[in-house]
Design a protein around this nucleic acid. Structure first.
Length: 259
DNA sequence: ATGGTAGACCCTCTA
């Protein structure tokens, strides 16, 4: 007897604007977990009622204008954690919870802007704090999934033009090394368990008709702990929401587990 | 030609 569990992540670039897309997607896909990033709203503006009407519980770690993360589920949401413990951070980028025996993290990694900016240094420091915290989480939670916008394309196959992007933010060696250190904790990049092809992207810039030309990056990831690896049945990028009117620049990534 | 779009929101910042 096994149950399929669907865990997804989506950077919505303003939940205020994207709520109709999110509700449509929840109703059509019926995921067990949806992690959101860039809600860009304070908790008082979060659409708890609209989600409840659709049959979903939610926890939100929000702020005005920037950042903001949420976890949405039809199941009970327990052991909620906001932010990285012990890491002083004014920006709301982490919410974690336990759902159906799985520890779930919704993460919005710092973008970094450019490799010569202060924001890039903050990104590397933030990733180091994330690594330390996830190492501790792994000790407490065998079944751990970390879903979110990592703002890192782990490999050249995850970038539409590696030569043009060489050394730049999202693909620079220090960022990729930080991502590898997360994997070295014992995580697996679930999408790559199933699909090794180049050109599979989760984000396309709004500019230069990038989506139509598939000029994108695979920067949204679902990392799973070793205990979940053998339960992974499928991981897909759902490009449909990116084709809608007024889309987010990111599209959902969804993992199916057989538990 | 160093561009372009989108969101929040007051004008410029972030992505």
């Amino acid at each position: 007897m096994s149950t399929a569990l669907k865990l997804a992540t989506w950077n919505v670039n303003s939940l205020t604007v994207r709520l109709p897309h999110v509700l449509d997607w929840l109703n059509s896909q019926r995921p067990d977990v949806l992690c959101l990033q860039e809600t860009k709203q304070e908790d008082s503006k979060f659409p708890y009622a609209a989600l409840a009407e659709a049959g979903f519980n939610a926890v939100h770690n929000g702020q005005k204008t920037y950042n903001g993360v949420a976890i949405i589920s039809p199941h009970p949401i327990a052991q909620v954690q906001f932010d990285i413990p012990g890491f002083v951070d004014a920006q709301k980028r982490i919410v974690a919870a336990t759902i159906g025996g799985i520890r779930v993290v919704s993460a919005y990694v710092v973008n970094g802007q450019s490799v010569d900016s202060d924001k890039y240094q903050y990104k590397l420091q933030w990733l180091a704090a994330l690594q330390d915290w996830l190492a501790a989480e792994l000790k407490q939670h065998d079944r751990l999934a970390v879903l979110g916008d990592y703002n890192i394309a782990p490999d050249d196959t995850d970038c539409h033009d590696p030569a043009a992007w060489e050394g730049q933010v999202l693909v620079s060696p220090p960022e990729r090394e930080a991502f590898q250190r997360l994997l070295d904790l014992g995580f697996h990049d679930s999408f790559r368990l199933f699909n090794k092809e180049a050109g599979q992207f989760s984000w396309w810039d709004y500019r230069m008709a990038a989506f139509r030309r598939n000029m994108g990056m695979r920067i949204d990831h679902i990392l799973v702990s070793e205990a979940l690896r053998s339960h992974c049945l499928d991981c897909i990028i759902d490009k449909a929401p990116r084709k809608l009117e007024r889309p987010s620049d990111h599209t959902p990534v969804m993992l199916t587990l057989g538990i």
